[in-house]
Deep mutational scan, measured.
Amino acid sequence: NQASVVANQLIPISTALTLVMMRSEVVTPVGIPAEDIPRLVSMTVNRAVPLGTTLMPDMVKGYA
């Protein structure tokens, strides 16, 4: 089972991601792979991401 990136807090729309905002967790459905966390830092989300939500590729500008 692959770990995915999960929001560690509410991430408001257009917020630049930082390490403290994300954690890795094995979830269903599978989202962005946890090993991509370093790549996600400073990318922005294009929607509000509630606490505990799995980050999907279409939620992060420039990721997909």
Rank of each mutant, 00 (worst) to 15 (best):
V60F: 05
T18Y: 03
I37D: 02
A48M: 15
M43R: 12
A16H: 09
L10S: 13
N46R: 11
V6E: 01
N46Q: 11
M43S: 05
E35I: 15
M56L: 11
L17A: 00
N46G: 07
S14Q: 12
I37V: 07
M21R: 00
L51Y: 13
Q9R: 10
V20T: 15
P29V: 05
L55C: 03
L40A: 00
N46M: 13
L10F: 15
V60M: 04
N1K: 15
M22I: 09
T44K: 10
D36G: 06
R39G: 08
D58R: 09
A3V: 09
A48K: 11
Q2L: 12
T28M: 08
A3N: 09
M22K: 00
M56S: 07
A34W: 07
A64C: 08
S4Y: 03
T44E: 10
V60W: 01
Q2H: 11
V45F: 03
R39P: 01
A48N: 15
N46Y: 09
R47W: 09
T53Y: 11
L17T: 00
Q9I: 10
M21V: 03
P12K: 08
L17D: 00
T44A: 09
V60Y: 01
A48Y: 12
V27R: 13
G62I: 04
L10Y: 15
Q9E: 08
L19P: 10
S24K: 14
T15G: 05
T53F: 11
A34E: 09
P38L: 12
V49Q: 02
P57L: 04
I37N: 00
L17E: 00
K61T: 12
N8L: 05
K61Y: 12
D58G: 12
M56T: 10
E25R: 12
T28S: 15
R47K: 15
P57Y: 09
M22W: 03
R39M: 13
S4H: 00
G52K: 04
M21H: 09
I37T: 06
L17M: 07
D36A: 08
A16Q: 11
L19S: 11
V5A: 09
L40T: 00
S4E: 00
A7T: 07
N8Y: 04
K61I: 14
A16P: 12
P33W: 08
Y63W: 13
M21G: 02
V6D: 00
D36K: 11
M56G: 05
G31H: 02
S14W: 14
V49E: 03
L55Q: 00
V6R: 02
V5T: 06
I11T: 01
V49L: 14
N46W: 08
A16V: 14
V20M: 13
S4D: 01
L51R: 15
T28H: 13
N1G: 13
M43H: 09
L51K: 15
R47T: 15
N8D: 10
S14N: 15
R47I: 12
A7P: 02
V27Y: 01
E35Q: 10
M59P: 01
R23P: 02
D58S: 12
P57W: 11
G31R: 01
T18K: 09
I11P: 00
V30T: 11
S42H: 12
M56C: 06
V26H: 13
G31Q: 02
D36V: 08
D58E: 15
N46D: 09
L51I: 13
M21I: 03
L19Q: 10
S4F: 03
A48L: 13
P38G: 12
K61G: 08
S4P: 02
T15Y: 07
A7V: 07
A48V: 13
T44S: 08
V41D: 03
S42V: 03
G62M: 08
A64E: 14
Q2V: 13
K61D: 14
P29I: 05
Q2M: 12
E25M: 10
L10N: 14
D36W: 10
V45Y: 01
M56V: 07
M22E: 01
I37Y: 02
V30A: 15
I32L: 05
L19D: 06
V30G: 14
A7M: 04
I13G: 11
G52N: 13
S14E: 14
D36P: 00
V45W: 02
I11G: 01
A7E: 00
L51P: 10
M22R: 00
V41P: 01
A7R: 01
L40N: 00
L19I: 08
L17R: 00
V60S: 01
A64L: 14
N8V: 09
T54P: 08
T15L: 05
L19V: 11
L17I: 10
N1P: 14
T18N: 05
P33H: 09
A3C: 07
